[in-house]
């Protein structure tokens, strides 16, 4: 498929914009010299993924993403950053390793491998239009996937207790 054919679809223009924003934000997350900025850039990347979910007709996942991630997880991160007094000023020496090139090489290698595999596997396979299926998710979650659902709730409970126990100051 030619790029011109692809871009002719208006939705793909939207996709491209979101994708560029996400990649930019993601790069900022891993390179930013300010930890607070990095966390805020993560919000942008996650918001982008929520937008992609909407495009894919997964509006329930999208809103969960916004609520759980952007609402809760990022706030948690900000707390973590403050408690551990991570350097918020520009100080690349303390934030990054010296060995950036090997890491970049590994990352690019992984990307090349994954992109090659998916391109070989799916080529130009078209994606059906998304249909909102929040109701189906509810049905399936409490029917077919009820045991995993309960297990996950236990995982969360365990994490909750574990988090409290770990982070609590010793009584003495």
């Amino acid at each position: 498929m030619q790029f011109t054919d692809w871009i002719a679809d208006a939705r793909n223009i939207v996709f491209l914009v979101i994708a560029l924003a996400m990649v930019g934000a993601a790069v900022m997350v891993v390179t930013s010299r300010n930890v607070i900025h990095a966390a805020l850039m993560l919000v942008v990347a996650l918001a982008g993924s929520a937008a992609l979910f909407l495009m894919l007709g997964a509006e329930f996942v999208a809103w969960t993403m916004v609520l759980v991630y952007i609402g809760a997880v990022v706030v948690l991160f900000l707390f973590g950053i403050m408690i551990t007094r991570a350097p918020t000023k520009a100080d690349p020496v303390r934030l990054d390793h010296k060995h950036r090139w090997p890491a970049l090489l590994v990352a690019l290698g992984t990307f090349a491998a994954m992109a090659t595999v998916t391109t070989l596997a799916f080529e130009d396979a078209a994606l059906p239009d998304g249909v909102a299926r929040a109701g189906d998710i509810g049905d399936v979650l409490f029917d077919r996937f009820v045991i995993p659902f309960e297990v996950v709730s236990f995982v969360l409970l365990a994490a909750l207790i574990g988090g409290i126990v770990l982070a609590r100051k010793d009584p003495e």
Partner: peptide, 27 residues
């Protein structure tokens, strides 16, 4: 829309994440 555009984007985000995991010193 094709499937692969999402997959390649995901691969890119994943690799950026790997880079971050490997290169950042702060936990």
């Amino acid at each position: 829309m094709i499937v692969n555009q999402f997959l390649v984007l995901a691969a890119l985000l994943f690799s950026i994440g790997i880079y971050g995991v490997l290169v950042r010193r702060n936990a």
